[in-house]
């Protein structure tokens, strides 16, 4: 390679590398670094070794936040993926109005979490919300409650907008998985006279395994990354009950000025997400 061209390459790469190191890699390293300190964001940083992590492992709120993140994943697996699957399956069988349906299913995916949060705060609203009005209408008035502050409903109420928002995305991914199934596989089943339910259980689902595990990885990483809804709908309350790991990290830093501890939570989150992605990838690879 000529000397002149070598410099061209340096010219190509250097701006991006400088930018990336200064605004991404260095903050990333800083997250780890500060997690070993006690720091309020203003005064001097005190080195405390592993204290933040020891505290973290004994912190019941952290465990409940972590559990809530997993609960979000469970809701996705039990509600979002099945609904998305049947929508995809029915669309795949050709339905009139396919384009219109797909368009509307996907609208929440491109809508901001703030707009969706506000819409759901109206749904849950005690005075005119759809939910309470609907319950009153069908004679289940006893069930009406203040959904976001009642401790027994708040955790689920905060997760529902998230579950609903991404049904369209899951639907499209599963739809492309369905399209990839070879036609003769399905035809062979039809010749053998399987019914609709058998067709789904014995032919469709097994051949969609890779797509389904992809949806699972997606569900887990999205559930751990997303905490807009907690910040916007409950702020983590009542009494830390709806806190997920992300919002707990956020609140420890920006509400309690506990930046060392907040960074320790950030590190824990990163480690957990990387491990989970790694494990699922392993399972997925050996299966393939």
């Amino acid at each position: 390679m000529a000397q002149k061209n070598r410099w061209t390459l340096v010219f190509f790469a250097i701006p991006t590398l400088l930018f990336y190191f200064y605004f991404f890699i260095s903050p990333l390293a800083n997250t780890f670094y500060v997690s070993f300190f006690d720091w309020d964001g203003l005064s001097e940083q005190f080195f405390v070794g592993l204290n933040n992590y020891i505290e973290l492992f004994q912190d019941p709120i952290f465990y409940s936040a972590l559990w809530n993140s997993f609960y979000w994943v469970i809701l996705v697996v039990l509600i979002q993926i099945p609904i998305a699957f049947f929508l995809a399956y029915f669309l795949y069988q050709r339905v009139k109005g396919f384009r219109l349906l797909r368009t509307i299913y996907f609208v929440p995916v491109v809508t901001s979490s703030v707009a969706i949060s506000l819409a759901f705060s109206f749904i849950y609203n005690a005075q005119f919300g759809i939910l309470n009005s609907f319950l009153n209408m069908i004679g289940l008035g006893d069930l009406t409650t203040d959904w976001l502050s009642n401790p027994s409903t708040a955790v689920t109420a905060v997760a529902i907008p998230f579950v609903w928002q991404f049904i369209g995305l899951m639907m499209i991914i599963l739809y492309s998985g369905l399209q990839a199934i070879p036609d003769d596989l399905i035809e062979a089943g039809e010749v053998d006279g399987v019914n609709a339910v058998q067709k789904i259980i014995y032919i469709i689902l097994p051949s969609m395994k890779p797509v389904l595990s992809m949806c699972l990885i997606l569900a887990i990483t999205y559930a751990f990354k997303q905490f807009d809804y907690v910040l916007l709908l409950t702020g983590g309350g009542p009494v830390y009950l709806t806190e997920v790991s992300g919002s707990y990290m956020y609140n420890q830093g920006f509400s309690e000025n506990n930046y060392g501890y907040g960074n320790a939570i950030a590190v824990a989150m990163m480690v957990i997400v990387v491990i989970i992605a790694f494990v699922i990838n392993k399972i997925f690879k050996t299966d393939d």
Binding site: L17, Y20, F24, I25, S26, G262, N263, M269
Partner: peptide
């Protein structure tokens, strides 16, 4: 090595960078 440094950022929950980004 450079490629991996970029790809690492995809898996991580990016919100974890919020404190250092704020102070930077």
């Amino acid at each position: 090595f450079l490629y991996i440094l970029f790809v690492i950022g995809i898996t991580l929950p990016l919100q974890s960078l919020i404190f250092p980004m704020f102070f930077r």
